[in-house]
């Protein structure tokens, strides 16, 4: 499957996330939409990782070069990045949900439109 399909899929997911953030009022749903954006990025990174890996191996094979460990590992940093995103997203979830819970305790709602004390 060509890489453009992955790019389009990811951008679609990403845009759905943005539209969700724009249209929803529930803080938890907004937050889930942001998670969707992050996961779109994860998908894209993995796809690119595979693409670069394939391209490197193919280039080596075309030039009749020995396939070394380094060439086999090309693109692995993209996948490592995905793990980092997962970890950071998890940390964000912890903090974010705590903040939402704190808000719920104080105003018994998670509707972001109630947040308008600070303006102008």
């Amino acid at each position: 499957m060509p890489i453009t399909h992955y790019i389009i899929l990811s951008l679609a997911l990403f845009s759905i996330g943005i539209v969700g953030v724009l249209t929803r009022r529930n803080a938890i749903i907004i937050f889930m939409c942001i998670e969707l954006m992050l996961n779109a990025v994860n998908l894209l990174l993995v796809a690119f990782s595979k693409m670069h890996n394939y391209a490197a191996i193919k280039a080596a094979a075309d030039q009749k070069l020995p396939i070394t460990e380094a060439i086999l590992n090309t693109g692995s940093e993209g996948q490592i990045f995905v793990f980092f995103i997962m970890v950071v997203a998890a940390a964000e979830v912890t903090v974010g949900l705590a903040i939402i819970v704190m808000m719920y305790r104080n105003i018994h709602s998670v509707d972001v439109n109630f947040l308008n004390r600070l303006k102008h």
């Binding site: 943005i18 947040l115 600070l118």
Partner: peptide, 17 residues
């Protein structure tokens, strides 16, 4: 310009997008 700072998260995101 002050009116742009409406206090609503939604409008902030909208303006940014």
């Amino acid at each position: 310009f002050r009116l742009l700072q409406s206090g609503q998260v939604g409008s902030y995101v909208l303006l940014m997008v």
